[in-house]
Design a protein around this nucleic acid. Structure first.
Lengths: 327, 327
DNA sequence: CTGTTAGCGCTTTCAA
DNA sequence: TTGAAAGCGCTAACAG
C-alpha cells in the first residue's frame, strides 16, 4: 500500500532520468533552455513511469501567480449569473485556468472580503460583477469588472450596452403602438438595471411620452417582484405595456398578469432583458433583450491576456432584441 | 508609488517587530508555541502597520494542503446544480474555504481531468456529483460523492433518498385516484434519475398497476424533453398522470400540456422531483419532491471534517413532497 | 547542453 | 520564550 499522500516530485523524476531538476523543469516548461532530444526522452519516460504531476502550488509560489481565476457574482443561483458563471468557467478552462467562484450576496463587505481572499492566491485575475461603489487596489492582481462596474472604476470593464438595450426594448414597444409603457426596475438606480431604466426614459421622452408615475421599483427576486406587481396589474388603470429591466422581473410580471386573468400580449405586453434560458425557452417565450454571455467571457479573458500595468481597454458589448410571444 | 505587486512578507513583519519569523508565525497561527504578550503585541502592531496578509500558496506548499475545496457538477447553469453549488459555496465560505467550480458537461473524461487538476492544488477535499462509472484514486485527496455516485463507490457518499422519493411521489398520485401514471425519466437508468424511476416502478407494482409502456426516456434538458413529450400528450391515449424524475422535465411536461390545451391537474396531473426554485415559485407551482440542498452541503462538509484515512461514513438524506397546483 | 544552487514565503524543528 | 535554519517543490540564474 502506497504512502497515502506521497506524490513524486521533480527531484524524483530527475533521479530516475539520471539528470538534474533544472533539466526536468526545462522539459516540463519547454524552456527557457533547450534540452537534448535524448535527455528529453529519458525525462519524459521517467515522468510517465512515475505518473508525475507538477505541484501548481510550488510553481505559483515561485512565479508569484497561480493558474486560478476568480469570479465574483451577487448570486450564482440566480439564472442570469449562473449562466454567466458557466461561460466564464468554460472559457477559463479552455485557457488552462481553474475558476474560483464567490457569491457576494449583494453585500459590498463580502465582495471586498472575497476580492482579498482570491487575490491572496495570486490568481491570473479576478472578474467582478460589482455591486460596490468603489474599490481598493488588489496589490497587482488584475481586476476586471464584468457586466456591472462601480461608477468611476479605474479597472477595465467589459459591459453590455444597457442604455442602448433599454432604448431598443422601449422603442420596440412604442413601435407596436403602445404609449402607456411602464418600467419595472430594480430597488435603486445603480448598476445595469439603472442604465436600462435610463434607456427607457430616453426612448420615452424622444417619443414625447411621459414616464411620470410609470416607474416601479421592485425586488430583483421573483417572489418579491411578483408580490409588488400584483396590485399594479389588478387595478383598473393598469399598464398596457411593461418593460422589465431583468427577465426575472419580466417573468414575475408574466405571472402577476396571469393571476389577474390578463392575456399576454393582448391585454398587456411584456418585454424583458437578459435573455436567460427560462425567458427564451420557458413556458412562455418572452420578448427580451438578449445578452451574449459567451462573448462577455471571451472579451474579459482577452483583456486579461493583454494585461498591461498602466492601462487596459474597456469594452461595451451589444445585445439584440429577441421577439417572443409576449409583445 | 509602491512597487506594483510587492506585498509584505513574514520577514518584513519580523524585521519591523524586531523579532524572528518563527515568532510571527506563532502569533499568526496562535501556536504551536506560546509567545510573550509583549512580543505578541509588537507583532500584531507590525502586521497592522504593514497591512500584512499571509500568502496561502506558501502555507499550502508547506502544509501539503490548501484552503480550497473543489466542486464538480455536470452543468452549473442547470437550475438544480446551480442551487446546489450555491449551497456548497456558502457552506464552504462559512468554514473558511474557497470553492473551485468545474463543469463536467456529463463527460467522464472531463470529470477525471478536473478531479486531477483540482487534486493537484492539494484542496481540503473534492465534492463530486459523479456521472462516471468508476474512479481512480486522488493520491490522498479526499473525494466525497454528493447527490450522485458511481455504483460501487469506495469513497463516501452523501445522497438523497431517490428511490424513497420516487415511491412517495408515485404513491401521492395513486392516492389521488390515478392509475395511468407515466414516468418521465432520463436518457438511461443511471444515477439519481434511475433510482427515482425504480421508486415509481416499486410503488406501481405494489399497487398492482402496470408500468408497461408507461416509461419514457427523454433528455434532462428543457427543450429536448418538451419536444419528446409533445407527441405523447397530443395523442388520444395520453397519460392521465405524470411522474417526472426531475423538475426540469416536469416543467417541460407542463409546457407540452399547455400546448396540447390540457388543463393541469384536471386533464393531467404532474409531479416533479428536486424542488428547484422555478418549480416551487414559478408561473405554475409544481407538486414536487423537494430536496434539502443546504443539508446536503452541510453533511458533505461534516464528512470532510471527520475525514479518516481508513473509512468514512456515507449518508442518505430524506426529502419531502411539496404539494403545488399540478396534482 | 547540463548541473548546482539560491531562492519564492511559510512552518517547525532544534538549540539556545 | 525566542532565534536560526532546514525544508515544502519548483524555477531560473549562473557556471560549467
Amino acid at each position: 500500500m502506497a504512502d497515502r499522500a506521497r506524490r513524486p516530485t521533480l527531484a524524483d523524476v530527475a533521479r530516475l532520468a539520471g539528470t538534474s531538476t533544472a533539466v526536468v523543469s526545462y522539459v516540463l516548461n519547454d524552456g527557457p533552455r533547450a534540452v537534448a532530444p535524448q535527455t528529453k526522452a529519458k525525462v519524459e519516460q521517467a515522468i510517465a513511469e512515475l505518473g508525475y504531476r507538477r505541484n501548481p502550488l510550488a510553481s505559483a509560489l515561485m512565479a508569484g501567480r497561480s493558474n486560478l481565476v476568480g469570479l465574483l457574482v451577487p448570486d450564482s443561483s440566480n439564472a442570469f449569473f449562473s449562466e454567466l458563471a458557466r461561460e466564464f468557467e468554460r472559457e477559463g478552462k479552455a485557457r488552462g485556468f481553474l475558476t474560483l467562484i464567490g457569491n457576494t450576496a449583494y453585500d459590498p463587505a463580502v465582495e471586498l472580503d472575497y476580492e482579498r481572499a482570491f487575490a491572496d492566491l495570486r490568481p491570473r485575475g479576478i472578474f467582478v460583477t460589482s455591486i460596490t461603489g468603489d474599490a481598493e487596489s488588489l496589490d497587482g492582481c488584475p481586476r476586471i469588472y464584468v457586466h456591472s462596474a462601480p461608477a468611476g472604476a479605474s479597472d477595465p470593464c467589459v459591459l453590455f450596452d444597457d442604455v442602448g438595450g433599454g432604448i431598443a426594448a422601449t422603442r420596440h414597444l412604442i413601435g407596436q403602438g403602445y404609449e402607456d409603457i411602464h418600467c419595472i426596475a430594480g430597488p435603486d438606480d445603480f448598476g445595469p438595471s439603472g442604465k436600462r431604466e435610463r434607456g427607457w426614459q430616453k426612448a420615452m421622452s424622444e417619443a414625447g411620452l411621459t414616464t411620470e408615475g410609470r416607474l416601479h421599483r421592485v425586488s430583483f427576486e421573483r417572489l418579491g417582484a411578483e408580490n409588488a406587481l400584483r396590485p399594479l396589474l389588478a387595478k383598473p388603470g393598469r399598464p398596457r405595456a411593461i418593460f422589465a429591466t431583468t427577465d426575472e422581473q419580466a417573468l414575475a410580471a408574466l405571472r402577476a398578469a396571469a393571476e389577474a386573468r390578463l392575456t399576454v400580449p393582448k391585454d398587456i405586453a411584456i418585454v424583458g432583458f437578459d435573455g436567460i434560458r427560462e425567458a427564451l425557452n420557458g413556458s412562455s417565450r418572452l420578448t427580451t433583450f438578449a445578452l451574449p454571455l459567451a462573448e462577455l467571457a471571451r472579451r474579459a479573458f482577452e483583456v486579461l491576456d493583454g494585461w498591461n500595468a498602466a492601462d487596459n481597454p474597456s469594452h461595451i458589448i451589444a445585445g439584440a432584441l429577441q421577439r417572443g410571444e409576449t409583445s
